[in-house]
Design a binder for these strands. Structure first.
Length: 196
DNA sequence: CCAACGATGGTCT
DNA sequence: GACCATCGTTGGC
């Protein structure tokens, strides 16, 4: 009873984003991504690091595309992948580091009808169980790039629950595929891939 | 069930 | 011109 309504409106603090990238990738699990009336629980993330991570967009220096990654923590980095889909990241680390956390999957919570319409399917498990799917369901595109999450149209809301976290290699990379930098809520059926 | 493949266009060399 | 932090479909079992 209680707190469902109250918890909904509590954003994380600015301090929340100022933790090391891997810690943030883990801390984001169980939190809520909120965009207008849409709301989803974050169930899967990946960390992208500056040092010794050839899979990171920032690993070969600043370019026009990856510039948001070198900004301050708590901003978005949205880019187009395979000419069709967008990926949503949350910039992390210290300014100039070039690190970020990729949001890979959500458990749909509110605004499910709109998600179903945009994704052209009713099946809940198929609405947000992948980085390209969740941006489609939430209507996230390049216009959402390089925006501050605090007080913006995209927000992260808090949750007190501490989910049980499982790790694996990251998905879909050629370089840096061996690193154990994927994090997801154990047993959650909205995760993009359960094996590995 | 699952492996293979094509779509599609921005980004960087 | 090659690469790509993906996804839906297809065709096999």
């Amino acid at each position: 009873m209680d707190t469902e309504a109250a918890v909904k409106k509590v954003q994380v603090t600015k301090r929340f984003f100022n933790q090391p990238t891997i810690a943030l990738a883990r801390a984001l699990l169980g939190k809520y991504l909120v965009c207008g009336k849409l709301r989803g629980k974050i169930v899967e993330t990946e960390a992208y690091l500056y040092r010794d991570d050839p899979g990171c967009h920032a690993s070969r220096g600043l370019t026009p595309r990856n510039a948001p990654m070198f900004g301050s923590a708590g901003r978005t980095y949205v880019y187009l992948i395979y000419g069709m889909y967008h990926c949503l990241n949350i910039v992390s680390g210290k300014e100039g580091d070039g690190e970020a956390v990729l949001i890979r999957a959500l458990e749909p919570v509110e605004g499910i009808e709109l998600m179903q319409k945009r994704r052209k399917t009713k099946k809940l498990e198929n609405l947000c169980n992948g980085p390209g799917k969740l941006t489609q369901a939430f209507g996230i595109n390049k216009k959402y790039n390089n925006l501050a999450l605090l007080d913006g149209k995209l927000q992260i809301h808090d949750s007190r629950k501490k989910p049980e976290i499982q790790t694996s290699r990251r998905i879909g990379l050629s370089a840096g595929k061996e690193l154990e930098l994927r994090f997801f809520i154990k047993g959650n059926r909205f995760v993009s891939k359960l094996d590995l």
